[in-house]
């Protein structure tokens, strides 16, 4: 009840709810591709490398007074750069892909931490980026996230057939005249943008869970990728909203609460369905 009062009376709660819903939708669409193509680890690398961009942007804002810059832009730039680098390496196949992902993952974080340490003042914001700061969302962020969200969902749906075949069978896609490299890099770029949207909700460290868990739950009840997508988007919206409500009521950190709700739901569904199957057998 408290939650609903707050929702009616406070803009920051309305903003938080809106961001949660937007993030949930992007999560369902892109997460379905990421899980189907088994590139969760790439998504992890992309999200952690975003800290590098955040650190540099934060430094430039404080030390050089670049107030037009927002750390989110830094995060987006770093995430996109990481996505394209990893994608290029994996398409070229000349380096071990997991080595490169691990390197980009850690180097991004190292750069971020270094720049933040050199930035004068109290760096409370850092915690927000690492673990989520959904209640601190400004109306500027809302605009950015809304635009990003529309771009992600529009591209994700418009090129559904191409992404689907590139995820399922790259080689056959090539024989049908699909530009596999282009769509793979586009998919990784969408993943990078989704990560940026999610960072405001659950933070860099917990992004992977929100990309994968709703899709994993949805996957148990759907036959096709688009069913997974729709259902996962719905589940993500419910999870982020519940996370917000529960954390507000109990005064818990929102990001962690959201992830735990998703985790518990996943465990229940997995456990429940295996119980159901063994009963049927």
């Amino acid at each position: 009840m408290q939650f609903f009062d707050a929702l009616v009376n406070h803009t920051f709660m309305q903003n938080a709810l809106l961001i949660g819903v937007l993030a949930g939708v992007a999560c369902g669409v892109v997460g379905a591709y990421v899980v189907a193509r088994r590139i969760t680890y790439i998504a992890g690398g992309i999200s952690h490398s975003a800290l590098g961009g955040i650190g540099v942007a934060h430094y430039l804002i404080v030390v050089y007074g670049w107030h037009w810059l927002d750390p989110v832009y830094g995060a987006a730039a770093a995430a996109l750069a990481a996505a394209l680098t990893i994608g290029w390496v994996s398409l070229k196949g000349s380096e071990r892909e997991d080595t490169v992902i691990g390197a980009i993952w850690a180097i991004g974080m190292a750069v971020g931490i270094l720049f933040i340490s050199q930035t004068p003042g109290y760096n409370q914001q850092l915690m927000g980026y690492l673990f989520g700061n959904i209640l601190m969302v400004s109306s500027g962020d809302i605009w950015l996230v809304t635009v990003l969200d529309l771009v992600i969902v529009a591209i994700g749906i418009l090129f559904y057939r191409q992404f689907h075949i590139v995820c399922f069978d790259e080689e056959f896609a090539r024989t049908r005249g699909i530009n596999v490299e282009f769509y793979y890099l586009l998919l990784l770029s969408l993943t990078a943008l989704t990560v940026i949207v999610l960072v405001t909700v659950v933070g860099i460290v917990m992004v992977i869970a929100l990309i994968t868990l709703p899709v994993a739950i949805a996957g148990r009840f759907s036959r096709t990728l688009w069913q997974t997508m729709l259902l996962a988007a719905g589940i993500s919206v419910v999870v982020t909203t519940l996370g917000l409500a529960v954390s507000f009521g109990l005064d818990f950190p929102t990001g962690a609460t959201t992830i735990l709700i998703a985790g518990v739901a996943y465990l229940l569904v997995t456990f429940g369905s295996s119980l159901f199957r063994s009963r049927q057998a």
Partner: peptide
Amino acid sequence: FPVTVMDVVLM
């Protein structure tokens, strides 16, 4: 991979 028979053939 989450895909139906028809989905595959459509490719």
